[in-house]
Design a protein around this nucleic acid. Structure first.
Lengths: 173, 173
DNA sequence: AGTCTGGGCTAACAACGTTAGCCTTGTCAA
DNA sequence: TTGACAAGGCTAACGTTGTTAGCCCAGACT
């Protein structure tokens, strides 16, 4: 995250750090507050509740994804392939944030307008604008990622091969 | 779930009911206990902690999935298509249980041996034994399901079409 | 000079998972 | 028949969590 300037940004930044190195259970209001040297109830001067703080983390995740995916696609000879690599890479580098972003219904009303779309745009472009194909590709990527993060594949599974097989199939359309 | 006979089965059954109609937050040790007329601490005579109770719910989910998928595939002219339909159907009929089963690392050590494999077998058969293809298909199904349950597709999205597109692509392999 | 307001604080609450320790009931051995 | 023991209830309580109420201080503006 970029230099936190406002107190609100400091809080988000502290929560992101905590999420990254202690997992979702580590992100308690008291722990977040402590990390910036205040007490838990003071957080409520900046966020109405924990849900909105979490949504702010999710928004930051989307911002990062949008940036990473955009640069992954631009000028690539194989946009879908590059995107797939970038997707898996980002998710495995931010496993807890990725899960937070995807595992429950999104409070879209609390998210900046257009943010979600801007993270999705590179993919829509990469598949040539076919929305059904884009959704299938997204689902494939999310499914592979989610199953990998949840340790669902056996230890001897060749996850790269599963990605290649799936992407190649969709690419042929 | 079949007729709960032992106390342990009663507990699992009560927890499943609670999960289905009050969601994950509704499944508290106190609420589960109350539903069968006992107090929360008594649950600990049957399960060492809430984690193991949850794993018992997950095991029941796998049992149901294995049964449903097996009958969906057998004798079908289009095994993969039937399986896809059955998968989506089961998940949307048991959204909370589905999420519980998939959203975090699995305590395999607490699961009956072979149970996970028996739920996966119909799929492996349906794709002709290619493990990479099976994993891609599983990921596609899980991704589509998970995104649908988390309300990730816009209201005007044609989710059926996304399923058809994805499955057709994999089928062509 | 007086008045807001932003943003900290302490104390406290209810709900949660969990533990300690007690008591009753039925089974079975001596 | 009696006594031991295990299974399975119970109450009381603890620490942690999100959250609220209510107080207070500092700076900005009228």
């Amino acid at each position: 995250m970029a230099e936190p300037r406002t107190r609100r940004e400091q809080i988000v930044s502290a929560a992101l750090d905590l999420l990254a190195d202690a997992g979702p259970d580590g992100v308690t209001m008291r722990a977040v507050a402590a990390r910036i040297g205040i007490k838990a109830p003071s957080l409520y001067k900046h966020f109405p509740d924990k849900d909105e703080l979490e949504t702010a983390l999710i928004a930051e995740g989307f911002r990062q994804m949008a940036a990473v995916f955009t640069t992954a696609v631009e000028g690539s000879p194989d946009p879908l392939g590059s995107l797939a690599t970038a997707y898996r890479r980002w998710a495995t580098e931010h496993p807890h944030l990725y899960r937070l972003m995807t595992h429950k219904p999104l409070r879209r009303d609390l998210l900046p307008e257009g943010l979600e779309a801007s993270a999705a745009l590179p993919l829509v472009r990469a598949v040539g604008g076919n929305p059904d194909l884009a959704r299938a590709a997204w689902a494939l990527a999310h499914g592979l990622t989610s199953l990998e993060l949840a340790n669902r594949f056996p230890p001897d599974a060749d996850i790269d091969a599963a990605w290649r097989t799936g992407i190649a199939a969709l690419q042929a359309r």
